[in-house]
Amino acid sequence: MANSGGGSAEYITHHLTDWCVGCTADHQPSGLVDFGAFTIDLIIVGLICAGLVALLALFIRKRLTVEDPSGIQMAMEAGVEYVSDQVGQVFHKRNDFVGAMALTIFLWVAAMNLADIIPVDLVPSVLGGIGHLLGFEHVYFRIVPTAALDTPFAMAIVVFAIMVYYQFRANGAKGYVKRFLTHPYGKYAAPANILTTLIDDLSKPVSLALRLFGNMFAGELIFALLAMLTLSALSPPSAMVAVWAPLHFLGGFIWSVFHLLIVFLQAFIFAVLSIVYLGMAQQTDH
């Protein structure tokens, strides 16, 4: 890395700093919640991934046939059928919106997670080089939107909003309030009920978002730590690079393979748990 001369802490920090508009001078949001700041890098990658998913959808739709499905169509049909089955099991009827949303979650999250498999220094180095030519001293660019809080919470909040809507639709406003007051300890423990139900409801979107964020953040961090094996031997240059560089590549390979599993597993878990939570929300027997 061109600008990692300050050691490992700076390298890691650099890797975890976004290209941010509206951030403070040290390129960080002003606090834990700062709606004035926009992490442009993650928005760009998120849009690219959404575009790729949209292109995949257009590509498949163009070649849809009833009699002679292509391989990619059969794969997508299998996915749609799986999601449809899950929705059917939870909802006991067809729900195209929830199905489409779960499929979208899986495809978009998988696409964004896959950005983690791109070598950890590749995009920052290339963009850093371009930035230097344009006269910027520091170029910050993270490429995994799901390794930050915003994108996982964006999806979790949408899921949560629909959960609340389904609860209202199933039980009415009165039923919704009544559930807060009387569930689960009975009508004489209203304060405890409100607290428990609030935790019960909020834990779902929070766990959805944090599970994805945690997995992807840890994955990204491990790639950066592995890259530091070689880096530590290069500054200052030493003969130990002959030991650390092969270890770096071996470790990177093994972690990439393992992380590939996590990439799809987390996308899958987010999609399936969304279906399950929405199914629970539309039940009338609260």
Partner: peptide, 26 residues
Amino acid sequence: VAITGTLIVQILVFLALVFFIKKVLW
């Protein structure tokens, strides 16, 4: 690690993608 305005953008992107996928793919 923070919640930023990106959250709003990603909600809009997500919703747009959901409706697109529902119409074009699902």
